[in-house]
Amino acid sequence: MKARDIMVSDVPVITTKATVAQAVQMLKDNYGDESFINAAPGLVVLSERGGLAGILTPLSVITALSGT
Results as ranks from 00 to 15, higher is better:
I55V: 13
Y31V: 07
S66R: 13
T63L: 12
G51P: 03
S35L: 14
Q25L: 13
V8A: 14
L65Y: 05
V11T: 15
D10N: 13
R4Q: 12
V24P: 06
A21M: 13
G42D: 01
P12I: 04
A3W: 09
S35P: 03
T63D: 09
L46M: 14
K17G: 14
M7F: 08
I37L: 07
A53F: 07
I14A: 00
A18Y: 02
S9E: 10
A18T: 04
E48N: 13
G50W: 05
V45Y: 02
L65S: 04
M26K: 08
I14S: 00
S60V: 03
T68Y: 07
G50E: 07
A64T: 14
T68D: 04
P12C: 05
P41C: 09
I62K: 07
V45Q: 02
A40C: 06
K17W: 10
F36T: 01
L56M: 07
G54F: 11
M1H: 08
M7C: 12
G32R: 10
I6D: 10
G42F: 01
V45T: 03
V61E: 02
G54V: 11
A21L: 15
G32Y: 04
M26I: 08
D10K: 06
Y31K: 06
D29I: 06
S66C: 09
V24L: 15
L65N: 03
I62A: 12
L43W: 00
T19W: 12
G51S: 13
S47A: 12
T19M: 11
S9F: 08
A18P: 01
V8D: 14
L27T: 00
G51L: 13
V11D: 09
T57C: 04
S66F: 09
L46W: 04
S66P: 05
G32C: 10
A3K: 11
M7R: 09
Q22G: 06
S35H: 14
I62M: 13
Y31T: 07
L27W: 00
S9R: 12
I6L: 15
S9V: 09
A53C: 09
V61M: 05
M7V: 08
S9K: 10
D5F: 09
G54C: 11
A18W: 00
Q22N: 07
D33L: 12
T19R: 12
S35E: 15
A21E: 13
P41V: 07
K2R: 15
G42P: 00
G67Y: 03
S47I: 08
I37D: 00
V20G: 04
N30M: 03
F36A: 05
T16N: 07
S66N: 11
T15R: 11
A39M: 09
A39N: 10
L65P: 00
I37G: 00
S60T: 06
T15C: 07
A64D: 06
N30H: 11
L27R: 00
M7Q: 11
G51N: 13
D10A: 10
V45D: 01
P41M: 08
V20T: 15
N38R: 04
V8H: 13
P12S: 10
A21S: 14
T57P: 01
K28T: 05
I14Y: 00
Q22R: 09
K2T: 15
G32P: 06
A64G: 05
S66G: 06
